[in-house]
C-alpha cells in the first residue's frame, strides 16, 4: 500500500520534471565568462526568437568544456583557447572553428598595490614586479583558457611561478568567480577577463592595475561538435546557431551587450 503510493508519487514527480519535454534545443558547452557576464542571457533569446531553437548552456572552465564536447556531451562549443580549439578540430572532434568575438584580460589587485604596478601597460613588467615583490597572486590553476593564458604570460616574462606555488603564487583550482573571491579575500593580484571583472559584484577595494597590452587579447571561437563522431549531435540546429552568431544580427547583438554601461565583447567574425 505504502509502496504503491510512493510509486505513484515518484511517477508524478518525474512526469512533472522539465527537460523531458521534447522541444527543440541544443546544448552549448561554454566558458563561465560568457555565461556569468550575462552575455548569453542577452543574446540567446534573440536567437531563439529568430530560429525557434532553445540553447541550453553548460558553463564550465574551457578545459572541462573541451573535454565534455570531445565526449559528445554538447552540440556546440564556445570557448577562448585558440590553440586548444585548433587541436580540437584537427583531431576530428569538431567540424570547423570560427572567430566570434574578443575581449581582453586585465590584471586586478588591491588598492594599496604592494608591487607598485598600477597603470602599467606592459603586462610582462607587471608580472615581474609581482614576482620580485613576492606579492600574493591568485591563479585559476584549473587548466582553463584564462589559466593557459596566464601561464603563457609568465613564460614570456621568464618566470616559473609554479616553483613558488603555495608561497606567493596561489593556485585556487576553481572558476574565475571563485578565484576572484579568493583573491579579494587574501589581497592577491589576479588575471581575469574583463567581462567577468566588470560583472563581478564582490570587488571590495580591488581595481584594475594593468591593462591594454596587446598580449592580453582574448579571442573567442565557436565550433560545431563533429556529428560524424557523435551521431546524436544536432548538426543542423547547431550550425544554425553558429551561422546566426557569425551573421550580422548575431554580431550586432554581441556588440549591443552592455554591463554597467560598458561594452564587454567585440565581435570580429570573419576578421582574422
Amino acid at each position: 500500500m505504502i509502496q504503491r503510493t510512493l510509486l505513484a508519487a515518484i511517477l508524478l514527480c518525474v512526469l512533472a520534471l522539465p527537460g523531458l519535454t521534447a522541444d527543440r534545443f541544443i546544448i552549448l558547452q561554454s566558458t563561465t565568462s560568457t555565461a556569468n557576464s550575462g552575455l548569453l542571457d542577452e543574446i540567446l533569446p534573440k536567437f531563439t526568437a529568430a530560429s525557434g531553437i532553445t540553447v541550453r548552456v553548460v558553463a564550465v572552465g574551457t578545459g572541462q568544456a573541451l573535454k565534455n564536447a570531445r565526449n559528445g556531451d554538447g552540440d556546440v562549443l564556445l570557448v577562448h583557447a585558440t590553440t586548444a580549439e585548433q587541436a580540437f578540430v584537427a583531431d576530428g572532434s569538431g567540424v570547423a572553428r570560427h572567430d566570434v568575438m574578443f575581449n581582453d584580460f586585465v590584471v586586478v589587485g588591491p588598492a594599496d598595490d604592494p608591487a607598485a604596478i598600477a597603470g602599467s601597460a606592459d603586462v610582462l613588467d607587471a608580472l615581474r614586479r609581482i614576482a620580485a615583490a613576492t606579492a600574493p597572486f591568485a591563479s585559476r590553476g584549473d587548466d582553463s583558457g584564462t589559466h593557459k593564458k596566464e601561464l603563457s604570460l609568465w613564460a614570456s616574462a621568464g618566470i616559473d611561478p609554479v616553483a613558488h606555488s603555495g608561497a606567493w603564487y596561489r593556485e585556487t583550482g576553481s572558476g574565475m568567480g571563485a578565484t576572484l573571491n579568493t583573491a579579494v579575500g587574501m589581497a592577491a593580484y589576479a588575471l581575469t577577463d574583463r567581462a567577468t571583472w566588470i560583472a563581478f559584484a564582490n570587488k571590495a577595494d580591488f581595481k584594475i592595475v594593468s591593462q591594454g597590452d596587446k598580449r592580453l587579447f582574448n579571442q573567442y571561437g565557436v565550433i560545431l561538435v563533429n556529428p560524424a563522431r557523435h551521431p546524436h549531435i544536432k548538426a543542423d540546429d547547431g550550425q544554425a546557431f553558429i551561422d546566426w552568431l557569425l551573421s550580422a544580427p548575431g554580431q550586432a547583438a554581441i556588440a549591443a551587450f552592455r554591463k554597467n554601461g560598458q561594452q564587454l565583447f567585440f565581435p570580429n567574425a570573419g576578421r582574422p
Partner: peptide
C-alpha cells in the same frame, strides 16, 4: 556521458540524471 556506456539514453544534463 555520450561517450560512456549509458550514453545512448541521452540522460546527461537532465533532471533525471540529477535524480
Amino acid at each position: 556521458s555520450r561517450a560512456g556506456p549509458f550514453g545512448v539514453f541521452g540522460l546527461l544534463y537532465t533532471p533525471t540524471a540529477m535524480i
